[in-house]
Nucleic acid binder design. Sequence first.
DNA 1: CTCTCCCT
Length: 828
Amino acid sequence: MIARFDPLLPIAEVLAEIGRALEAGPNLVLEAPPGAGKTTQVPLALLDASWRGDGKIILLEPRRLAARGAAHRLAAHLDEAVGETAGYRVRLDRKIGPKTRIECVTTGLFLRQLQGDPELKGVAALIFDEFHERSVEADLALAFALEAQASLRPDLRLVVMSATLDGAAIAALMPTARRITSEGRAFPVTTHHLGDDSATWIEKQMAAAIRRALADEAEGDVLAFLPGLGEIRRTERELGGLADAIVLPLHGDLPLSDQDRAIQPDPQGRRKIVLATSIAESSLTIQGIRIVIDSGQRRVARFDPATGMTRLTTTKVSLANADQRRGRAGRLGPGTCYRLWSANSERALAPQPAPEIIEIDLAPLALELAAWGIDDPSNLPLLDPPPAAALAQARELLRELGALDPSHRITAHGRAMAELGLHPRLAHMLLIAKSRGLGALACDIAAILTERDIIGGPGRSADLGERLELLQSGGGDRGARARIQQAAKDWRRQLGIAAERDGSRSEAGSIVALAYPDRLAQQRGGKGQYRLASGRGAELALDDPLSRESYLAVATLDAGQKSARIYLAAPISLAEIEVDFASLITSAEQVAWNAREEFVEAKRERRLLALVLEEKPLQKPDPDLLRAATLDGIRQMGLDVLPWSNTARTLRARVAFLRRVLPEKDWPDWSDDALLASLPDWLGPHLTGMSRRAHLDRLDLHAALTDSLDWQQRQALEQLAPTHLDVPSGSRVPLDYETAEQPVLAVRLQEMFGATETPRIAGGRAPVLLHLLSPARRPVQVTQDLASFWKGAYKAVKSDLKGQYPKHYWPDDPLIAEPTARAKPRPR
DNA sequence: CTCTCCCT
């Protein structure tokens, strides 16, 4: 027989102090490492407290296994059967009797109880075990309990127990709480750091470490922690056959019989190497372990508000995780732990894992808040507030499901959802399906989606229909099937559905889509490639039979970098989509530039969010939309696509010149950027009837730009920046505004005889740059000061020209000479 | 190179 209180347990030293603290005040924080004995000894100590009266003590556990286990250990200490003084309640299973005063309850189930009875009638104390795990449920349950205590139940005792905890942070939530610390009890574990090696695959490192451990340690089984299934399989392959040892994988997807094989000692007495995910960190205890090898990695689910999907990522463990893993080697006696990292890089590890509330889908939390009547979670005593973006996303979803009204208040539908106790999307699915006479089918589907997969192993199809058939035929994994059937039965009972099946596999798609309308998927491009209604891409595994289907209702997927991977889905027909989602389907004229074929495509589209269900070409599109689309095309292709004539180019240069020299006048900005920005204003009116790239060749850009100037500007332009200048010879010589900063007048020297000064434009503001040419139009001189040229350089130039063009007229005094466009002036 | 774990 076990003693009710075990004086050898470390917690024994502080039990009296715990008793006194709870006499003095209602709240207590107890920090005690594993092995202290807190899970059994603390509830038993409270049983004897005078303040308890006949009230119950509720011990909150994160897992069903832990709740049942605690009840069994408590009953053993009381020398009773489970269900007498100590009992448990988990979903689908309870052992509680009229005498029960200590109830071991999963936190999730307790939240349902609390929402229904915030006063907690008949409850004297709540004990939060393993609070350091920081599940959303425990965070919320404590927050709600503190509120209930403050407003309704000042006498309610709250005890927060944790292996490692930031005592100061929790003290802020529970300002009056006493803090008590206890020692733990464990055998010493020798730690070897094997160093950082990012160049070698983790599987190779792990295999090498396992071989080394088997060689170094003469006895004891090995527990190796890896992030996931893939790493476990590859490490297994890497190890090959080991003499006298067996390798056993252990992960959550394994049938229970295989899990048991990994947990029990080998019947043939061989050494055992268990390759495990973090399932072996706290949920399962494996017998015979003396050696732990830790990869230092773990896989976590992160919710991405941008996609509304969850993504699995591999991250480094926290120090608390690593220590918890190491502790698994010190259960039987002194142990050994190998860490696949260095003592140095260990200092960079986070002390604790991120609390769940930071990283996961907050739709369930948002519904709990609404059911509790809370709009703003910042008023709640939470250690970490829910991230605003994820919470907003969650509330938007709940609004779409009809669980919240626009001011975030819970609706009757929302209340019914919350009471069902499953993810809000699935709760909504059950309620709506029931109203359509398909409630039983929906219960089966919800159970398939929430429980372990009935089909195991690689190469399984994503088809939900196969699972539905296995449920009925009695195939697939027995343990998984039993749980699925149990869960479905429980929901049918809650919903008052008598039938076991009321719909067929072919109706599964339209049921699933009730929960995940944003995951309706339409096939596109290659086989197995889909577009989701949310706009993201998704794909099936190669050769999945489902990839024949044009439309899928997707239930579970993993958001990858580019494309999400579909894990469970059911086919749905276009006709079903049309009927079920009529309110989400929009029909709109779509007039848009088709960049590939360079024309305006006008069509009528029927869409469901990002999916185009049907499209028809439009015979007479709205001319305004047509013009806007053409403008959009020009914007995409750039200004160079337009037919720039010389006159149009010159016009832009003339205006740019005036903008430069007369900044006080409002000459328009006709730079590329500005013209692109004002495209609708100056080009829009000229685009009538133009809907493809080839049509643009008909444009007169000179006219379009000129039209955008007012009458006065047009007059001023001709005066201030003329296209041509009259020179003394009588010729009209073109001005070049484009090649240089200043306008260039290229003219034969002889035509300028008689001109004393450089010609000026822009109202005299700017002299032109003279390019004086030979009779054969070879450049002779560049000047901006004609007067100085005549006086100075002309003399030398003249003699040169005379040599080359002896028959031409080269007067000594150019100022009084007669200008000419010919070799010599006409004789008078 | 095919999904971490848990719960109502």
